[in-house]
Design a protein around this nucleic acid. Structure first.
Length: 465
RNA sequence: GGCGGCGUACCCAAGUGGCUAAGGGAGAGGUCUGCAAAACCUCGAUUCAGCGGUUCGAGUCCGCUCGCCGCCUCCA
């Protein structure tokens, strides 16, 4: 039984979609004004585990993600760079999905850009105006929080005091209440704008997620997720806009991932602890190790990202890879063992139960390592047959459908260096004739090239360091 | 000030009242090996920030103290 922590209730709840097996899931994507950083990817890896788990459980998932390609930052930066907004955001949108590939994050089924959904947004604004939940002021349209009593239910904030009391100074816009948020920003000189019946301008940030998520996922979404920092005000505002317009529950399950911090403090460019994925891969870190590290802490707990952590993750990853390689090249007798069948079944069950429990990836990793140790023990004892191997690999395949941490087939091919293979063969011949001096010479030569040799009962295998 | 979270071995990290506190890294032994390396196996917390309390029983619940962090403004 799959269950998730719902931010709305603050509790773990059994997950059931509104219309099984269909699941509509929306997550807040990037504002494409720069390269995404490692903190962003913590959240996107979490979403990746979420979508893969849902698919592994047989759900017919439609995963929707937006691209914010118009906002203050994108407008300002594109202008500063002297390129069009579209050209500017296209560059960083492409970079964003390149990073997805690098981290093996599966792409959403629907990727929607704000600028391509202006009609959906203006329709939503008009409905809110018609229903008295929004008002025009000084050319812009604002959502009237006082008209939506449930405002604050997601972030557990009480705005009663603020509504009647102190009014914060509002310099630029004329709002009835300081907490009212902008739906539609009035036209400004030099900024992109669209014509509407309630005034020319451009959408406010919160609007796009309500409009696009409902356009693709319907009035009531099964899951909406994002980083914890979006709970307020972004998601709170989405609820107000959406439920205000439809009168229906907007989202049934809200899932939020906690912050990633770096070296114990919040990532910021000024303190020099700000990493993009590219910074880390340039330093030689394996992106799959980064992926592994990002899923080794539960998503609702802060993760302190360090390069030492990446190294530890790489070591853990190596152990898994080693296990699969070793199992693959062993010569095994035909047949199977009852004990091995039970072992595989139990591992698969434990792995699934861990993920079912609010995506407990750390516990799922532990299940994997326990399994690896148990199989290694039996391998040493000669208690693993060909059929057992197939069962082990079947579980490994199931695991990797969610974790996606095993080497891709073409990775292995890329490593197949004929020159190295020839030297390894020469050394094996030297060893066969007990020409130890020559064998050691070749070993040293390869070591100098970063190649590590492993003399196994099945022959010598090698890998690049 | 309001809301929320965290503090488990040298490091990372599970644990959502009840058999001997998962797992990974590092470390220490051992097996294999021509020697190595790699790999594999084994061993590592009478103890869960501290102090009280509830309970037959608490790392797990309650209270207080100390330390750390997030949100309350754009932010994954």
């Amino acid at each position: 039984m799959l269950r998730f922590h719902n931010t709305l209730s603050g509790r773990l709840e059994p997950f059931t979609p509104l219309h099984p097996p269909r699941v509509n899931m929306y997550s807040c994507g990037p504002t494409v004004h720069d390269y995404a950083h490692i903190g962003n990817f913590r959240t996107f890896v979490f979403m990746d585990i979420l979508q893969r788990t849902l698919r592994a459980r047989g759900y017919d998932l439609q995963y929707i993600m937006n691209i914010t390609d118009i906002d203050d930052k994108t407008i300002a930066k594109s202008a500063a760079a002297g390129v069009s907004l579209a050209d500017y955001t296209e560059k960083y949108t492409a970079a964003f999905f390149e990073d997805f590939d690098t981290l093996r994050i599966q792409r959403p089924d629907v990727i929607c850009k704000a600028t391509e959904h202006i009609p959906e947004m203006t329709r939503l604004v008009q409905i809110l105006l018609d229903r008295g939940l929004a008002y025009v002021s000084d050319g812009s349209v604002y959502f009237k929080i006082a008209a939506f009593p449930e405002y604050g239910k997601l972030s557990k904030k009480d705005f009663d005091g603020l509504r009647s009391g102190a009014r914060v100074d509002v310099d630029e816009y004329d709002k009835e209440n300081a907490r009212d948020f902008v739906l539609w920003k009035g036209k400004k000189e030099g900024e992109p704008h669209w014509e509407t019946t309630f005034g020319d301008g451009r959408p406010g940030w919160h609007l796009e997620c309500s409009a696009m998520s409902m356009a693709y996922g319907g009035q009531t979404l099964d899951i909406h997720c994002g980083g914890a920092d979006l709970v307020f005000p972004h998601h709170e505002n989405e609820i107000a806009q959406s439920e205000g317009a439809t009168g229906e529950t907007f989202v049934r399950f809200w899932l939020h991932s906690e912050y990633l911090i770096v070296n114990g403090e919040k990532m910021s460019k000024s303190t020099g602890n700000f990493y993009t994925l590219r910074d880390l891969t340039d330093k030689g870190h394996n992106p799959v190790a980064i992926r592994y590290l990002l899923m080794s802490t539960h998503y609702r707990k802060q993760l302190n990202f360090t390069e030492e952590g990446v190294r530890q993750a790489q070591a853990a990853l190596d152990r898994i890879h080693e296990f699969v390689d070793n199992l693959g090249r062993r010569k095994l007798p035909a047949g199977d063992h009852r004990d091995m069948t039970d072992l595989c079944d139990a591992a698969a069950r434990r792995f699934d139960e861990a993920l079912d429990d609010d995506l407990n990836t750390a516990a799922a990793q532990a299940a994997l390592f326990d399994f690896i140790r148990d199989v290694n023990r039996r391998l040493d004892a000669g208690e693993v047959g060909e059929t057992d191997r197939a069962r082990v690999m079947a579980f490994i395949g199931k695991m990797d459908a969610v974790f996606d941490i095993l080497p891709a087939a073409d990775d292995a091919a890329a490593e197949a260096d004929a020159d190295i293979a020839a030297l390894v063969k020469q050394r094996e011949e030297a060893r066969r004739t007990k020409n130890w001096a020559e064998a050691d010479r070749i070993r040293d030569e390869l070591a100098a090239r970063g190649v590590i040799l492993k003399d196994t009962p099945e022959g010598t295998v090698w890998k690049k360091n």
